[in-house]
Computed example of a mutant assay.
Amino acid sequence: MFQQDWILRQIEMIGVILARLLFGKDKPDYEIVEKEKLSDSDQLYIELIRMLDEGKINEAENRLYEELDPARLPMLELALAFYSRLNQFDDAYLEAHNYSRQEIEEGLHAATKLFGIQLE
């Protein structure tokens, strides 16, 4: 339990630090600017959040990695928002859907590494 709380806080801190350094934001958050004209990234974000809410966590993460493009920095912002949102679920929800805090941390590290950011 204590280790899970520590991992949860670590994930939050990594997201906040990267959001501030890279995007000038207080927290990792993906914003849809034009709701009438959704970009491909906007549509992907909506799809991923829906999948997370439906408990399709592994499928959502796989979908994220299919689309991550290191040449497009906004995709890193989307990945940070994805893992931040995932980190907000409680341990029971994650366990019920075969996922863990450790996997969130590993996924966050892997996503940032694709963009040339080594967290370890």
Rank of each mutant, 00 (worst) to 15 (best):
L108P: 00
E67H: 11
N87T: 09
V33E: 13
L80Q: 06
L78F: 12
G55Q: 07
K35T: 11
G116P: 07
M13L: 14
L68Q: 12
A71H: 11
F2L: 12
D53G: 09
N58A: 07
R50K: 13
R50V: 03
R20S: 11
L108M: 11
R63E: 14
L73H: 08
E95G: 00
E12R: 05
E34T: 13
Q118L: 00
G15A: 03
Y99Q: 01
Q10F: 04
R85D: 02
A60R: 01
L18G: 04
E36D: 14
A81T: 01
H97P: 02
S39W: 09
P74Q: 10
E31N: 05
D90R: 01
T112F: 02
E67A: 11
E77H: 09
D29N: 11
F2A: 12
L108Y: 03
I49Y: 02
E106N: 07
M13Q: 14
A92H: 14
I11C: 13
S41H: 08
E67Y: 12
Q102C: 00
Y30M: 07
L52P: 03
P28K: 06
L114W: 05
A92L: 09
G24E: 12
L68D: 07
V33K: 15
L22S: 04
A96N: 15
L21A: 12
M75T: 03
P70H: 10
L73W: 10
H97K: 08
D26N: 10
Q3G: 05
L108W: 03
Y45R: 06
M75K: 09
E31W: 00
P28G: 08
A96M: 05
Y83D: 02
E47R: 15
F115Y: 14
L8G: 03
E105Q: 14
K25T: 11
L21Y: 10
P74N: 10
E54A: 15
F2K: 13
Q4K: 13
M75A: 00
D91M: 09
G15Q: 01
I57F: 07
H109D: 11
L22E: 05
L38F: 12
D90M: 03
L44C: 09
L68R: 13
L78N: 06
E66Q: 15
L78Y: 08
Q10D: 06
K27P: 05
L18F: 05
K25M: 13
L8I: 04
Y83L: 06
F82K: 01
L108G: 03
E106D: 09
D42Y: 00
D90A: 02
I57Y: 06
L108F: 04
E59R: 15
D69V: 04
D26S: 10
D5C: 08
A19I: 06
E103M: 05
A19F: 06
L80W: 09
E67R: 13
Y45S: 06
G107Y: 03
V16G: 01
L86T: 02
Y93K: 01
N87F: 06
L73A: 05
L44Q: 08
S84E: 08
L80C: 08
N98E: 09
A92Q: 14
